[in-house]
């Protein structure tokens, strides 16, 4: 594949992401300005993000080893206690580094 072709595909992907994301940003405002959202639809919307996120996390973790499992647990605990994405990320990175340096997991 030529370089230009590759860049075109990349550009299409980014534009698709941008348009899709903008529609989610204005969509909620637009919908409630015009329609009454049914409780069922609202419930479904509220379940999607958690279901998507866990679908990303679990198969990825299943491929990882004990060091990643420990780090995931640390990130979860810190996220739970602090509600701060940055702290959770730093905890995950810190613990995975720590565990990888332990002889048991090396």
């Amino acid at each position: 594949m030529s370089k230009i072709q590759m860049n075109t595909v990349t550009l299409i992907a980014i534009v698709g992401m941008a348009v899709g994301t903008y529609l989610t940003r204005v969509g909620g405002y637009w919908l409630v300005s015009r329609f009454e959202l049914t409780p069922r639809f609202q419930a479904w919307l509220s379940y999607v993000p958690g279901a998507i996120l866990v679908s990303l996390i679990v198969p990825e973790l299943a491929k990882g080893g004990p060091a990643k499992w420990g780090a995931a647990l640390a990130a979860l605990v810190v996220a739970w206690r602090s509600g701060n994405i940055l702290y959770a990320m730093l905890a995950g990175i810190g613990v995975v580094l720590l565990l990888r340096h332990l002889p048991v997991f090396a």
Partner: peptide, 14 residues
Amino acid sequence: MAFIAVCIALLAGV
């Protein structure tokens, strides 16, 4: 680990 940790934090948030 950064990506998974961010996803976990987002999951805890939602």
